[in-house]
Amino acid sequence: MFLPRHRRAIQRDASLIPDNLSALRSDGWDGYPNSLRDVLGAIAAGTIKYVVLLSGDEHRGCIATALLTEMDGTPITTVHSIHTAAMYAPYPFANGIDEDIVEQETFEFDYKAKRYHCIVDATRPAPGDGATFLHVRQDGADWKLDCEYAGTVQTLTL
């Protein structure tokens, strides 16, 4: 899962630097702080729009929105990280739980001699098995992404 980050990966240090020993406790993106920083930095520095990252592995759906801003709070762009639910996950002990992730956080990071803010807000649909459906559509001047988990739809504006 690209974002949000796991509690275990930031328990001692929330920074995106290689000295963050807590990151060693994760095999997700938060376990590789340099790579996470470089991806976020490239998106922010290039003012790349309409970024949606899709992942799966934790047997638990999650939708995170990350606002990348200048240090003065000026918005740059928004990144959406969608983590799909499991099609079939009969073993509860193998599934991610809500307490594993940090649903809301703000952290700073440096990329190419510039500092940025990343403001993350994540939501999780009700636990359960089933397909995750994504539908992109144009609504006037906006692009919308509908994320459907077990009949519940969350719409993101891209």
Results as ranks from 00 to 15, higher is better:
82 I>D: 14
78 T>E: 12
4 P>A: 08
4 P>I: 12
136 V>K: 10
29 W>A: 11
88 Y>T: 07
34 N>P: 00
38 D>L: 04
55 S>D: 06
19 D>I: 06
149 Y>C: 03
6 H>E: 12
75 P>S: 04
109 F>Q: 05
122 A>P: 01
63 I>D: 07
69 T>S: 12
158 L>W: 06
38 D>Y: 07
17 I>A: 12
153 V>H: 12
130 G>A: 03
40 L>K: 07
121 D>H: 15
96 G>W: 01
113 A>Y: 07
89 A>V: 10
25 R>N: 15
5 R>I: 07
89 A>T: 03
15 S>D: 09
148 E>W: 11
133 F>D: 15
120 V>E: 08
134 L>M: 13
140 G>S: 03
148 E>V: 09
76 I>W: 09
55 S>L: 02
10 I>L: 06
104 Q>P: 01
86 A>Q: 01
115 R>Q: 02
71 M>H: 05
132 T>P: 14
2 F>C: 11
31 G>K: 02
148 E>K: 12
51 V>G: 05
74 T>G: 00
146 D>I: 05
52 V>G: 08
22 S>D: 11
14 A>G: 08
56 G>N: 05
125 P>K: 08
95 N>E: 10
80 H>Y: 15
32 Y>D: 07
128 G>N: 00
125 P>C: 05
138 Q>A: 14
16 L>K: 11
83 H>V: 13
105 E>L: 05
132 T>V: 07
94 A>L: 13
7 R>L: 10
25 R>Y: 13
58 E>D: 11
151 G>V: 02
92 P>I: 00
87 M>I: 08
132 T>E: 02
60 R>P: 05
152 T>V: 13
11 Q>E: 08
155 T>E: 10
48 I>P: 02
102 V>E: 13
32 Y>L: 09
89 A>D: 02
128 G>H: 04
14 A>C: 02
14 A>S: 08
15 S>R: 02
131 A>N: 10
118 C>F: 02
11 Q>R: 10
45 A>H: 13
50 Y>G: 04
112 K>D: 03
87 M>H: 05
114 K>A: 13
67 L>I: 01
144 K>P: 13
107 F>S: 05
39 V>H: 07
131 A>W: 14
102 V>Q: 05
158 L>N: 03
136 V>D: 02
117 H>E: 10
43 I>P: 00
115 R>H: 05
84 T>S: 07
59 H>C: 01
8 R>Q: 03
55 S>Y: 09
133 F>M: 15
90 P>N: 00
128 G>L: 00
128 G>F: 04
27 D>M: 11
112 K>M: 15
135 H>F: 10
132 T>L: 06
59 H>G: 00
88 Y>R: 07
147 C>T: 10
157 T>H: 12
26 S>P: 15
54 L>P: 11
148 E>L: 05
60 R>Q: 14
42 A>V: 07
133 F>P: 06
41 G>R: 11
75 P>N: 10
137 R>A: 15
73 G>F: 09
86 A>E: 10
85 A>P: 07
85 A>C: 06
85 A>K: 01
113 A>H: 09
130 G>T: 00
120 V>G: 01
127 P>K: 01
23 A>P: 00
104 Q>R: 14
113 A>D: 07
138 Q>W: 12
136 V>W: 13
10 I>P: 00
40 L>H: 12
153 V>F: 08
84 T>D: 04
144 K>R: 15
19 D>G: 14
50 Y>V: 01
56 G>S: 14
119 I>R: 15
156 L>Y: 10
